[in-house]
């Protein structure tokens, strides 16, 4: 139910701001929601607590989904985000801005989140703190070499307080990831860098929830969760279409997507 309401928030934020990365927003939303709602130990009151869990959105272009979740969790005000997103002088830009409460690091340039999170996890280990560190990467992002530099270091330093989610929606701006630059066998790649690997259907909230729980119990290595998702999830109009990477819905598309989200919400309510 909640995830469908947040999908609607994402849509409205994009329409209000006149742009956004709607396809990736929809594929990553469940992971963001499950993480913030059930696992990440941070609240608007603890954004400077040295023991807080850390999160970095490495696929920073999925910012509208992140706004929706940060608003839902009380870090930001949804009406304010909608009123000022992308507007001149606004702090609400199209990628993470760490001047906003709850956002640790700026991103937007791909391949940055994992190395930064390795530093955060290393600091936690050296200090004997119990916090965990999470990042979410896009699958197209995996072509950036710095991702694998970070993966190598996380494996080397056995950072089991680190969990990286790959939003494996299979599409990037130019088309299918396997046509643009292949990433399979993805599980084997992460394993070879010294990681535990979990694979889930990332369109399923219970599956994601279970994976985040399991990752906490996996010791000795960092954990990668390959979250197999649907780009544009929630509306057949957008699903699995690369052109919806950052397409701004026209008025009639907006209405159709809204209806699809209502249907999804209704179906979720009946379950």
């Amino acid at each position: 139910m909640l995830s469908w309401e947040l999908r609607r928030d994402v849509l409205d934020i994009i329409m209000a701001g006149g742009g956004g990365h709607i396809g990736g927003d929809m594929s990553v939303l469940n992971a963001l929601l499950v993480l913030y709602k059930n696992h990440l130990r941070i609240t608007p009151e603890t954004t400077n607590d040295p023991d807080r869990d850390r999160f970095v959105l490495s696929k920073g272009h999925a910012m509208e989904a992140y706004y929706a979740v940060l608003c839902h969790r009380g870090f930001l005000d949804l009406d304010d985000v909608k009123a000022r997103f992308n507007k001149c002088g606004s702090p609400y830009i199209g990628h993470p801005n760490n001047k906003l409460p709850g956002i640790e690091m700026n991103s937007g340039s791909l391949g940055h989140g994992l190395p930064v999170c390795v530093g955060m996890a290393l600091a936690g280990k050296r200090d004997g703190r119990k916090y965990r560190v999470y990042t979410i990467l896009g699958d197209g992002e995996l072509a950036e070499g710095s991702v694998w530099e970070g993966a190598m270091a996380a494996g080397h330093y056995k950072l089991d307080n680190l969990c990286a989610v790959v939003d494996r929606n299979g599409l990037q701006i130019s088309g299918p990831t396997e046509d643009v630059m292949s990433h399979e066998p993805l599980r084997a790649r992460w394993e070879s860098f010294g990681w535990h690997v979990l694979e889930v259907n990332g369109d399923s909230i219970p599956e994601l929830d279970g994976a985040f729980s399991q990752a906490k119990s996996l010791k000795g290595k960092p954990t990668a969760i390959i979250s197999r998702t649907t780009k544009g999830f929630g509306s057949p109009l957008m699903e699995n279409k690369a052109e919806w990477h950052h397409h701004l819905p026209a008025a009639e598309e907006y209405e159709a997507i809204k209806k699809d989200f209502e249907k999804g919400k209704g179906a979720a309510a009946r379950e």
């Binding site: 850390r54 690091m105 190395p115 530093g119 955060m120 290393l122 710095s146 530099e149 190598m152 270091a153």
Partner: peptide
């Protein structure tokens, strides 16, 4: 912290450490 021959990682990890008060 030894990073190996990986300067991008060197700087990214340094930033992560700094964000945790190092």
């Amino acid at each position: 912290v030894e990073m190996g021959i990986a300067e991008q990682n060197l700087v990214g990890i340094a930033a992560g450490l700094a964000s945790c008060g190092k």
